[in-house]
């Protein structure tokens, strides 16, 4: 590459980085102002005095520690149960023969296309009302652990394992359960990690369902908790921004550390759509 070309690539990337990061810097600056500074005319870039107290106020109004704890619990539970259920089914579809297998598989394929939101009403009926799980973390986990997408992803990984390995295990008298757990699972680890990360992101970002099924702030995830920051009668912009910063910062730090690993894992998911 020529020097000039490199120069232009840098210029472009710097501009793009500003577009992607700039808003977050603005968010941070706003979070350090007083309420009146946020609506001061003409606009000011920096506060007169840095208002760390906004973070304290918003933290008193919203139990961020609880919200984080809830989110972590929900995410871990969702990822773990989804991986377990999906890998069991994926193993069966990839390595076992049983009547009706293809038909079942096609039915599941159809479900892949269905947007989750259309199930909100019946889910609220079943999980919220009939199982009486309104205002519980369990209610947040249940709808997300049955992942058709996960089955598709993992099936490819299970299918790629050489038949000889399975045959050898069978000769040694291994049961299907042992083949699945002790021999196959370690071999599909990259798939599990990739699915785990995707599930993690989706479950971390989910907004609509937690908003509907849980009422008290103590049982909300970060996502739904943040949505609650907008009050109708008063909105303190600086507190809203402080709350947003609290939600962003830990993820950015984690991501900065694991950037490479993260990209590699995602790479696994795009293999064949």
């Amino acid at each position: 590459m020529t020097k000039l070309k490199k120069y232009w690539i840098h210029v472009t990337l710097v501009l793009i980085s500003i577009i992607f990061v700039g808003p977050f810097l603005w968010m941070f600056l706003t979070s350090l102002k007083t309420y009146e500074e946020t609506i001061q005319v003409p606009m000011i870039w920096l506060p007169d005095e840095i208002q760390w107290v906004n973070y304290q106020i918003v933290n008193e109004k919203f139990p961020f520690l609880t919200l984080y704890f809830n989110t972590v619990v929900v995410v871990i539970a969702t990822v773990f149960l989804q991986l377990l259920i999906a890998s069991l089914a994926a193993f069966a579809f990839a390595r076992l023969a049983f009547p009706g297998k293809n038909l079942l598989f096609l039915t599941f394929l159809g479900l892949l296309m269905v947007p989750g939101q259309i199930f909100l009403i019946p889910h609220f009926q079943i999980i919220g009302v009939q199982l009486n799980l309104i205002d519980t973390l369990t209610a947040l986990v249940i709808p997300n652990i049955f992942s058709v997408f996960g089955v598709f992803l993992l099936r490819q990984f299970f299918a790629a394992i050489p038949q000889e390995l399975e045959d050898a295990a069978k000769i040694d008298g291994c049961s299907s359960l042992r083949i699945y757990w002790q021999i196959m699972m370690p071999l599909v680890t990259p798939g599990l990690v990739a699915l785990g990360i995707l599930t993690m992101i989706n479950s971390w970002k989910e907004l609509l369902w937690p908003l509907i099924v849980n009422q008290s702030i103590e049982k909300m995830t970060l996502s739904a908790g943040l949505a609650n920051l907008i009050g109708e009668h008063t909105t303190y912009h600086e507190q809203v921004m402080a709350g947003a910063v609290i939600s962003v910062l830990p993820m950015v730090i984690i991501f900065a550390f694991f950037q490479r690993k993260f990209v590699e894992s995602i790479a696994q998911t795009g293999i064949k759509g």
Partner: peptide, 20 residues
């Protein structure tokens, strides 16, 4: 890292940020 930041930000936070 710069370009990936919005991807790991909660949509809720993105909404609040852009609203402002």
């Amino acid at each position: 890292t710069a370009i990936f930041i919005p991807a790991i930000t909660l949509p809720a936070a993105i909404g609040l940020l852009w609203r402002w």
